[in-house]
Simulated scan of single mutants.
Amino acid sequence: MTEQHREDGAGTARVRHDEAARRFVIETDGVDAGFAAYRERADGAFDFVHTEVDPAFSGRGLGGTLVEAALTRSRELGRTIVPHCPFVAAWLRRHPGFVADVDWPDDAA
Results as ranks from 00 to 15, higher is better:
D54K: 00
G30R: 06
V31R: 12
A109Q: 15
F46S: 13
A100T: 09
D18F: 05
R79M: 01
T80W: 08
V99W: 13
A37T: 12
A45I: 04
R16S: 13
A45D: 07
Q4F: 15
T12Y: 11
G63F: 06
H50S: 03
A45E: 09
G97R: 10
R93P: 02
V67K: 11
R16F: 11
A108T: 11
C85Y: 05
F57Q: 05
R23Y: 01
G34E: 04
G97Y: 04
V25G: 04
R39G: 11
D47G: 02
R79D: 08
D32H: 09
V15P: 05
A21E: 12
S74W: 10
A69E: 05
R41T: 11
A45Y: 04
R41N: 15
E3R: 15
V102N: 04
M1R: 15
E40S: 03
G78V: 00
Q4G: 13
R75P: 00
G30Q: 08
S58V: 12
F48T: 00
R16T: 12
E76N: 10
A90M: 08
R73A: 13
A100M: 11
T80G: 09
L92E: 03
D54I: 00
T72A: 13
T28C: 14
C85F: 01
R93D: 14
V53W: 09
V88S: 11
V67E: 10
F57T: 04
G64W: 01
A10T: 14
R39T: 15
F57A: 03
F24L: 05
A45S: 10
T2M: 15
E40G: 05
T28I: 15
A36W: 03
H5C: 10
G64L: 09
A89M: 01
F48W: 05
D101W: 13
P105G: 03
L77G: 07
A33W: 01
R6P: 07
E7N: 14
V67W: 04
E76F: 00
T65S: 14
R6D: 11
A20E: 15
A108G: 04
P105K: 00
R73S: 14
V99D: 15
P105S: 03
L66C: 07
T65N: 14
V31S: 09
D18T: 09
A33L: 05
T28A: 14
E52D: 10
A90D: 14
H5D: 12
L66K: 07
A42Y: 09
F24D: 06
T72H: 13
D54R: 02
T65H: 15
R75I: 04
G64D: 11
E3V: 15
